[in-house]
């Protein structure tokens, strides 16, 4: 066993950092035993690389039209995934589309879970009437069909990537609030919380400094499992013409424009769908694996 591994697995860690890194290392070991989760991780890494290095990976400009070379089939000499109805290279558009997908996922995952975390911890910490009101609100949102609600929101706000994100976030927070509240209820009565309270800490400081961090792991697992759903909803909004607008290379939008040529030029609609499928599958595989690592009890579910 090499030095750094021994340091990581030290049964008596000398600093919180060492203990935390040790836990992370053990988690990684458990995750790496699950081949499907590793495949998922690989897909996500590939997505990140594609988004970061899009200008290098793309063979053409994703926006430049070439009407002379429109609707060329895959494996053409210059376009290995073919071209769309404006002669734009589909591979290049897919690569740049990875940026939009990541952008949407990132925006939703920094908004919805935060809202859910605040509502859930406040609700669980104070209890009583606050809890009743907030949880009833959560139940109301949970009882709604998400896509329909997002549709109605976008209808009101107008189409566009940011509005689609807002609509998805507005409909995505309730499950996180539920999870955070459940976690809060289990730590609320803990001795260390009582100790902080006796030291004179205010409710705000207790909730955000000491309760919310305890809820984070469960919320993170939930977010990873939801990412595929976020991608699919965003693509659905794009497909309906309510998300990203042309000429952005958003994958759902690309499927929608390829629909007109489905029977003659099948690749225009097929390729972006494959991209969505692979990326969602990656998030699902990774999320499943992460849940097994962080919550072994729920692994059979």
């Amino acid at each position: 066993m090499t030095g750094w591994r021994a340091w990581l697995l030290d049964p008596a860690p000398r600093s919180p950092l060492q203990a935390r890194l040790g836990q992370a290392w053990l988690g990684w070991l458990r995750l790496s035993r699950n081949p499907l989760a590793l495949i998922g991780l690989l897909i996500i890494v590939a997505l990140l690389v594609a988004a970061a290095l899009a200008p290098l990976l793309a063979t053409h400009d994703p926006y430049v039209q070439n009407l002379a070379g429109r609707l060329q089939p895959p494996l053409s000499p210059d376009h290995w995934l073919g071209t769309d109805e404006f002669g734009r290279d589909i591979w290049s558009r897919l690569v740049y589309g990875a940026r939009i997908t990541l952008y949407i996922v990132a925006l939703v995952t920094v908004t919805a879970p935060v809202v859910g975390l605040i509502i859930g911890t406040v609700s669980g910490y104070f209890g009583g009437i606050v809890d009743t009101v907030l949880m009833r609100l959560t139940d109301i949102f949970l009882a709604f069909p998400r896509l329909i609600l997002a549709l109605a929101f976008v209808a009101a706000l107008g189409p566009g990537v940011e509005n689609a994100v807002l609509a998805i976030a507005l409909t995505a927070w309730p499950p996180y609030a539920r999870v955070a509240r459940a976690e809060t209820l289990t730590v609320r009565g803990a001795d260390y919380i009582a100790a902080i309270r006796l030291q004179g800490a205010g409710s705000g400081r207790i909730i955000f400094g000491h309760v919310a961090p305890m809820c984070l792991p469960s919320v993170i697992v939930r977010v990873t499992l939801d990412m595929a759903g976020i991608i699919l909803t965003a693509a659905g909004l794009g497909f309906l013409g309510l998300g990203a607008q042309p000429p952005l290379p958003e994958w759902g939008l690309m499927i929608s424009s390829g629909r007109k040529f489905l029977f003659e030029q099948w690749w225009v609609a097929t390729m972006p769908g494959l991209a969505i499928f692979i990326v969602s599958l990656g998030f699902n595989l990774l999320g499943d694996g992460l849940r097994d690592v962080l919550d072994p009890r729920g692994s059979s579910k």
């Binding site: 595929a228 693509a235 759902g252 499927i255 969505i276 499928f277 969602s280 998030f283």
Partner: peptide, 8 residues
């Protein structure tokens, strides 16, 4: 099934 866009 969880990963495929239904419209696709």
């Amino acid at each position: 099934g969880y990963s495929m866009p239904v419209f696709w």
